[in-house]
Simulated scan of single mutants.
Amino acid sequence: MTFKELVVAYFQYPAIIAYLVLSVVSFGVWLWQPATLAQTVVSLAVAVMAYPLAWYLLHRWVLHSQWMYKVKILSPVWKRIHYDHHQDPNHLEVLFGSLSTTLPTIVVILAPIGWLIGGIGGAAAAVGAGLLTTCFYEFCHCVQHLKYKPRNKWLAQMKARHMAHHFHDESGNFGITNFFWDKVFGTFYERPDRKEKSETVFNLGYTPETAERYPWVAELSGGVATGHPTQRAKD
């Protein structure tokens, strides 16, 4: 895949278009009820700086949770927002986060912070920053999952670490572009650090045995797929 093809695939996804449109709306709200320059800068900075930590916490303790699939009403959400992605990490349709869950999360976390800093204008600035940061994260996520070999050393390094999360051991490397919080919480690793491959790297612990007790994800998925995604595609 060329860089141009990567960019085309990225901008074709509806959620990305929605994030960009809503970021323009956020800017319009800021123009309508502007915060001061200092309040705006602080709101933007807090939103951008808080994003890696928020992503880490959500990724580790929600997306990789062992509780969502046990609740019938939450099992379809868990299946869509992360189980399907780990079942087939390179499948474009489930590569991006679900708009129905990602957008409310951005607003719920960042709008109150921005409002406390600078009222409506601060909230608009923080939400807009969160939306654009999400676009950046999703672009890096595309680089990591699609058949594109980055020339940039930093992107190549991020891709290797994220691919280890998906194909070797899902219990670490929860960051996308920033592994600072993985290092803080002790979940960062380089591929050679862990000799043994996780048996649950593709199913996140939702095994056929687990499905017998909590069947809802399996019912929605037509069963529980096992083994490497490329091998399943050949069968």
Rank of each mutant, 00 (worst) to 15 (best):
R194V: 12
M158C: 11
F174C: 01
V143W: 07
S198K: 02
G121E: 08
A160I: 06
F174R: 01
D193I: 00
A18S: 07
Q231G: 02
F3S: 07
W61N: 08
K183S: 02
H165M: 03
A129Q: 10
Q231I: 05
W30F: 15
Y19E: 13
T40L: 14
R80L: 15
T177S: 05
T210C: 06
N152P: 05
I109W: 00
N90M: 08
P112N: 11
F185W: 02
A35H: 05
S43N: 05
W154M: 09
A111N: 12
E199D: 15
L95I: 12
C140S: 08
F27C: 14
C140R: 08
H82F: 00
E209V: 07
K79L: 07
M158I: 13
Y214H: 07
A211N: 00
K149M: 10
I16E: 13
T105W: 09
Y51I: 05
L99G: 01
V201S: 03
L131V: 06
M49R: 03
T226A: 07
A156D: 05
R232E: 03
L92P: 07
L95Q: 11
Y13T: 15
L103R: 00
S26E: 12
F96K: 02
D84C: 11
F136R: 10
W181D: 07
L58I: 15
A123S: 08
I17L: 13
M49N: 06
I120S: 11
V71M: 03
G172I: 13
T177H: 02
D84G: 09
L146D: 14
P104E: 14
D169G: 01
V184T: 14
C135V: 15
S75V: 03
